[in-house]
Amino acid sequence: MATQHIEGTQEAMILNQRQTSVGFVGLGTMGDPMASNVAGGGYDVRLYDVDIERSQALAARIGATALQSSEDLAGCEAVVFMLPTSAIVRSVLLTDAGVLRVPFRPGTVLIDMSSSDPNETLETGRLLAAHGVHLVDAPVSGARARAENGTLAIMMGADDEEAADRAEPIIQTMSERIFRTGALGTGHAMKALNNFVAAAAYTASTEALVAGERFGLDPQTMVDIFNASTGQSFVTTHVLEDHIVKRNYATGFALPLMTKDVRIALNLQQSVHHAAPVCEAVTGALSDALEALGNVDHSKAFEFWQQR
């Protein structure tokens, strides 16, 4: 009897998901597989991207609906955003005067999974709240492979607990673990700080590789020692050997995005009046590499620092 009750509950949950319309905006490297997982979770998914052909192709592949314009999102009960910056998210949602571009119904839940600036998220959330629309920030950690298999780590902030509770089942289709970080903006703050820590480890470890190689150390031996010693980090175990020592430079994380995230972390620290000399140094190193190299994989910065 208990088994029948559980099965009945699961069936009801699936039916409820199929009746819930979820918009998904931004179908790039990460957005494509994330939207696929939302559709795989049983939701009525409606896709929008500035590249209409991209949204149409994905819709055909996953059984979703491709929208012709962002205004068509108005009928969705929840909308996920996976866009490059918080400024772009804001431009999709609001005019400069704070008027809704999309006539969302009051109570609609918007889920910003982009790597956004937390201070801009707070301002956007305030403007949306004036229209009765709820914003939840839920940025992701994990590369495309984890987006594809639905095991992303999510940092979720929200001011409205009911909105967070409505967002969570949607997010679960894309996630292995959801961390509730607190009020609106804390998810984006945590993502920026996490990426700063990762970028600092990357900058420091590649700087050490350059110095060691010039002194006569073998790079592979250095990596092996890092990973058996206190210098071990995600960067030394997942980036250095495959992408630096072997010169593949294909982590899937672009240099402009890493630089943007570290700048967000620096702005965050400055906004809370915190001295951040390490963040300033990492921001400067990445900015120099970005100016010289442009839109390349972030691991390619090693060559710039090596030659400088």
Rank of each mutant, 00 (worst) to 15 (best):
G23M: 10
S271T: 12
Q10I: 14
L193I: 15
M113E: 06
V296H: 06
V140R: 02
G31R: 13
N149R: 12
A198R: 03
T9I: 08
N119A: 13
V197I: 14
L257P: 09
I225G: 05
T237A: 04
M156K: 08
A143P: 04
P118R: 12
Q172P: 03
E168P: 01
L135G: 00
K191W: 05
T251I: 07
R263F: 05
D96E: 15
E280R: 14
G23R: 08
A250F: 01
F81G: 01
G157S: 12
R146K: 14
L128D: 00
R146M: 10
L240W: 07
G294R: 13
A250I: 02
H273N: 15
D224T: 13
A57P: 06
T151I: 07
A145V: 11
V50K: 14
F226E: 03
T3P: 00
T108Q: 00
I62M: 10
N195E: 06
L209C: 03
V99P: 02
T251P: 01
L209D: 02
T121R: 09
I88C: 07
V136K: 00
P139F: 08
V223I: 09
G107V: 00
S233F: 05
G185H: 10
M156V: 11
R18D: 01
L94Q: 12
F196C: 03
V38C: 02
L100S: 07
G26Q: 08
I14H: 04
T108P: 00
A301H: 07
R105N: 02
S116Q: 12
M82C: 15
A198G: 06
M258E: 00
I225H: 03
A130C: 04
